[in-house]
Design a protein around this nucleic acid. Structure first.
Length: 659
RNA sequence: GCCGGCAUGGCGCAACUGGUAGCGCAUCCGACUUGUAAUCGGAAGGUUAGGGGUUCAAGUCCCCUUGCCGGCUCCA
């Protein structure tokens, strides 16, 4: 029998399978004619195959999915639980269960212990093709699996071949004695044997999850886990989690005294302390400067508005759920309690656009004024549901670095290009360098405004401009809001996590609703196009992302305290105070530590508060008009002359570099 | 909004099955004056998120509210 292995012709005995062909233990499955299959697969004439190693992307998915099965077996060994689904996910897997009692952390430990036993018992994953009737029979005690079978037949009826139109398979877990210990309806493939999971897995958490992600369906218990080819990779993964935890902006915000969320104020409503305040101020000042240079004009608008504005804008129609409920004011009653004056509703604003648009509409506009760019640090309030607020990244009150650009059709492409370049430059100034773009286009449904033609044109324009940056462009079909397509900038942080930062959003809706126009060179009235864009997204969120990106080690230009001076003895107090004065005159944020702690303690304190420059001086330094630098990583440089020290600090701040 | 967990001085934590709150850091006072990540001694500080209940007795048990955490759903 002839088959092709990695493009090479190989001769195999009839009935030969993957175990024969790939004896290497690191190979856990294989591709056959493009499909992932078990090693137990018996080759057919002319099959094309290649190995799947355990550490490849496909291999890891298969491993994780297999460990999900082991978890499910363990759960069913220990509890009365019905099976949901158990797919691999990034870095791990989950399995959903219908179970009466919610699982706890203690349960997790028990389940993991049981999993270890299953792994050690060396069970084989064995594939078996079944008819639908057989599958229903064997899964008769598993209502959720039966529902999946129902759904499968429904979609087959509709000619939808997406969901496993192929044969149905059950995987049996068979132990050394040939006894079937467990089975699951599953497409596979799987690792050959539970032992392969050996030392590289761990359960990580439990939570609830809706069946099939549907809020109206029942809540299941979801067990999350992770799985890796070996113990080292698992340890590395755990270390990665710990690193992320160390960088958590909520923790750093507390430790570095940057911001807090007083419960007296309410959920999702942060206050910035002086140390966080100065960072914000520097960020905002820099942003203002850049916007001025880029031709933006600054506007200011209130935080609340009468209901009617949001009726015109459509927010109440489309997004009232995300808005704080209204406050009703100005009603007046006479002595009999009869309504004398109809009051009205005011809403906290969830977006700035209607306000900017009113500024546009305050007088007639000429094409000569376009593009008109209105910028504001606009405070908005959104009623985020109670379960979703999260540190600074998901809040109920925030400040957007928001701008609305009013442009003509002809100017659109160039303006988008400018904005995109502006965004990327600005993000780079903040130390983010690794980006990709996402283009969200129209949903196929009819939930959109404007005509399809205009959408198509605009999407094409966005796409062209995005491609021209040379950055990776990911399509997000159907991801657009109802009012227009958008480009979003995704940035990767220092430990490789991606964050959605800026968005550039076209709007076909508001110009219509507010009946915007400008007078063109032809003397006729035309409708401008509105571009929404926020570069940071929200200041709060960006602040959180930067904190995690830098792990609290803000570069000198952003650091709340840029220089801490530590005298070796009291004799240097004057000397360092003079030095600090010189820096202060240059606008440097500097402190001299005159406390009566020992200098080792002072160094420790300032290192822990992550101050970029610790400047130390003793007698010998003073004698030669010098100081010593100590950086956050513990490195030191001695004997730096005063003028040079000042210059270096100033340079580091001015260049916005990290030290 | 849903499921589960948590809530003790500024911060991090302790207090066995209910028996009238402890420790470290920080703070304040005093002593010490010291070349690169914690000097020593002393003092002050909480009625245990808020409210209600059970009990002779509640930080420990029950209920409600608020907030936080992990997910789900959502994120204009």
């Amino acid at each position: 029998m002839q088959i092709t292995v990695d493009g090479e012709n190989v001769t195999l005995e009839p009935g030969g399978d993957g175990f024969e062909l790939f004896p290497d233990k690191n190979i856990i499955a294989m591709f056959v004619n493009g499909e992932e299959v078990d090693l137990a697969y018996k080759f057919q004439e002319n099959d094309q195959t290649s190995a799947i190693t355990i550490d490849s992307d496909a291999g890891l998915r298969i491993l994780r999915h297999s460990v999900a099965h082991i978890a499910a077996q363990a759960v069913q060994d220990l509890y009365e639980a019905k099976l949901g689904i158990g797919p691999p996910i990034e870095d791990g897997f989950y399995y959903d269960f219908m179970i009466d009692e919610p699982l706890t952390e203690q349960d997790l430990a028990k389940i993991q212990k049981r999993m270890k036993e299953i792994v050690k018992s060396s069970q084989r994953f064995t594939r078996r093709v079944v008819s639908e009737a057989e599958a229903r029979e064997e899964m008769s005690a598993e209502p959720l699996k039966l529902e999946l079978l129902d759904r499968r037949s429904e979609s087959l009826d509709e000619g939808n071949v997406e969901v496993d139109a192929g044969e149905l398979t059950i995987y049996d877990n068979i132990d050394r004695n040939g006894e079937t210990k467990w089975k699951d309806l599953c497409r596979g493939p799987h690792v050959p044997n539970t032992r392969i999971a050996d030392k590289g897995f761990a359960l990580t958490r439990v939570s609830a999850a809706y069946w099939l992600g549907d809020q109206s369906r029942q809540s299941l218990q979801r067990v999350y886990g992770t799985a890796w080819p070996d113990a080292e990779s698992l340890a590395e993964y755990k270390e990665r989690l710990e690193e992320a935890a160390r960088r958590d902006h909520r923790k750093l915000g507390q430790e570095l005294d940057l911001f807090s969320f007083p419960s007296e104020i309410g959920s999702g409503l942060p206050v910035f302390h002086p140390k966080g305040g100065i960072i914000r101020q520097v960020m905002e000042d820099y942003s203002r400067k850049k916007h001025l240079e880029e031709g933006y004009e600054f506007v200011y608008t209130p935080h609340i508005s009468k209901q009617n504005l949001f009726e015109i804008s459509g927010h109440l129609q489309w997004y009232s759920e995300g808005m704080f409920p209204p406050m009703h004011i100005d009603s007046e009653y006479d002595q009999e309690g009869e309504l004398k004056k109809q009051g009205q509703n005011y809403y906290l604003k969830p977006m700035n656009c209607p306000f900017h648009i009113l500024i546009y509409k305050s007088r007639s506009r000429s094409y000569r004024e376009l593009p008109l760019r209105m910028f504001e640090f606009g405070s908005v309030y959104r009623y985020e549901k109670s379960g979703v607020v999260h540190g600074l990244t998901r809040v109920r009150g925030m400040t957007q670095d928001d701008a609305h650009l009013f442009v003509t059709q002809e100017q659109l492409a160039e303006e988008i290009e400018k904005v995109l370049q502006f965004v990327l430059d600005l993000l780079r100034d903040y130390g983010l360098n690794d980006f990709y773009l996402e283009l969200s286009s129209r949903d196929d449904g009819d939930k959109f405004v404007g005509d399809a033609k205009a959408w198509e044109l605009a999407t094409e324009t966005l796409s062209k401009v995005a491609s021209a940056t040379g950055l990776e462009l990911v399509a997000d079909p159907g991801g657009a809001a109802f009012y227009g397509p958008k480009i979003s900038v995704q940035a990767k942080d220092a430990i490789g996590r991606t964050w959605q930062m800026s968005t550039i959003q076209l709007d076909f809706n508001l110009p219509e609703r507010f009946d915007l126009e400008y007078v063109g060179s032809d003397g006729e009235k035309h409708r401008p196009i509105v571009l929404h864009r926020a570069l940071f997204g929200s200041i709060e969120r960006f602040f959180g992302v930067l904190t995690e990106h830098y792990a609290g080690h803000f570069p000198p230009w952003l650091a709340p305290v840029q220089v801490a001076c530590v005298p070796i003895t009291e004799n240097q107090h004057e000397y360092l105070l003079d030095f600090a004065d010189t820096l202060k005159e240059q606008g440097i944020r500097v402190e001299v530590d005159l406390s009566d702690e020992r200098m080792q303690k002072k160094i420790r304190n300032h290192t822990m508060s992550k101050i970029p420059f610790i400047v130390i001086a003793g007698d010998s330094d003073e004698a030669e008009s010098a100081v010593s630098f100590r950086y956050r990583d513990g490195t030191q440089r001695n004997g730096i002359k005063l003028e040079q020290a000042v210059e270096e600090i100033m340079d580091a701040v001015a260049s916005r570099e990290q030290v």
